[in-house]
Design a protein around this nucleic acid. Structure first.
Lengths: 244, 244
DNA sequence: CGGTATTTTGAATGCTATCAAATAGCGTGG
DNA sequence: CCACGCTATTTGATAGCATTCAAAATACCG
């Protein structure tokens, strides 16, 4: 049996609030109904909405919107420990589609079960809300990124942010991380062309800032990158001011 | 005494769920502590967070982030009936600044009072959550707008969306609305230059689509605009599927 | 009526897209 | 194990949209 504390969700929430053993076992109660899915499948389709949310246990996922001309904008990527479709399940509205980027494993969560957990345990409810709020803050940061930064800065900021998130769940550190995204994914997320993404990555590599090759992001000069885009990971590393 | 049903907040929430007289009086209970502010003042500053949220009663406000190079990205505008700083008050984190665009009137709302209302009245709690969720959906729509549309399309989409929101609170219709935003505001919201905003507005005007002059937006061809950007106001006009 | 903020227009530059094509990587089947 | 086909990456040349710099015209305010 897996050690409860080691699920990505527990790690992430644990970074927000201290979790007791009983908190952890309540959380693990949500991890029944495991499901596996191959890469490139839609989990939720734009407009559809049902009573189920998911916790991503393994693999990467993206949420996106398609425009009438066929282009798409990726709103966010989700990594292990993230909820999928939480708001759409709670509020019966889905404004975007969700697709698996890699093969994934998810745990189905019934809204009813989740609300029960919240009712039993304020600490967990807060932690989950906190995480949801962080996700929203990331969308805002993403908006600023696309609206006001050059292509090189966008890329740097994006890869730094991803690094911080992965570090939180033990899948990366300041030296880099494994990343399954293609240059097309990056393009759709950053509002660029895949061709230009390639040139931007080359530029970052040639300036000794970072290398993204063979599915691995390597920060060659973390501090330099952070300075370049004024990266402030504070909005991700909350030190749980609400509950201790 | 003002008729309760006529506050912009009541109008907006009323479009989500049917509100009874007792719901309305509970709502109006939140409208004590009226405050007035002149244009161009900060209500909440990036990073600060306190226990107070606001309901905007009159005037326009914008929430934005400033980048280290001095440029700014406006994340959203708020119009009468919108909450200001709701999430930051609930979760003790503010990721953006809020500034008055015009002279405004707000009602201060203590988190405690708001939570009391929620506890007493599920219908209102749902309506408010719904409104908050709509605001989030608008940020996502905004992201898509900036990431994947041309300058002309961005402008058209933005002004259409604003029109829908204003219509909901009785401040506009399909023919147009009064709009206090300067071309600098539009530029900061759409990730453009003020100079280019001007050219884009001219282009829209010369194509007979819309006219924005002397603080008035006039839709010269509403259907043409909606088609141009595939505008779908569905995500704003919810017909309250949750509570009737 | 002067002063400031906003809008408008012009010319030149530059960043990113588009179009086109070559190279490299990877899984599959012979 | 190699050939094949597909997807992803890389590079070059050209076009275009939006920015930048500059300045004039107009609106707004006390």
């Amino acid at each position: 049996m897996t050690v409860i504390e080691d699920t990505p969700l527990a790690k992430k929430l644990g970074a927000f609030v201290a979790l007791s053993t009983s908190d952890l076992s309540l959380l693990s109660g949500l991890h029944r109904r495991r499901k596996a899915l191959v890469a490139g499948r839609d989990l939720v389709h734009q407009g559809q909405s049902d009573q189920i949310a998911y916790i991503l246990a393994a693999g990467w996922v993206c949420s996106y919107k398609i425009l009438p001309d066929g282009s798409r904008q990726i709103v966010d990527f989700q990594i292990p420990g993230d909820f999928l479709g939480l708001r759409s399940a709670l509020l019966h509205t889905s404004d975007r589609s969700i697709e698996s980027v890699t093969d994934i494993e998810v745990s189905e969560v019934l809204v009813r079960d989740l609300l029960n957990v919240f009712a039993q345990n304020l600490r967990l409810a807060t932690a989950v809300l906190w995480a949801a709020s962080r996700d929203e803050a990331m969308v805002v940061e993403h908006l600023v990124n696309i609206g006001r930064r050059s292509a090189v800065e966008r890329m740097a900021h994006f890869l730094l942010e991803l690094g911080s998130r992965l570090t939180l769940v033990g899948m990366g550190d300041k030296s880099g991380y494994t990343c399954p995204l293609t240059q097309y994914h990056l393009a759709d997320a950053l509002g660029l062309t895949a061709v230009h993404v390639n040139r931007v990555l080359r530029q970052l590599r040639e300036n000794g800032l970072l290398t993204f090759r063979n599915g691995v992001v390597t920060f060659d000069n973390y501090q330099g990158l952070a300075t370049l885009v004024d990266f402030d990971p504070t909005y991700l590393d909350q030190t749980g001011p609400l509950l201790k």
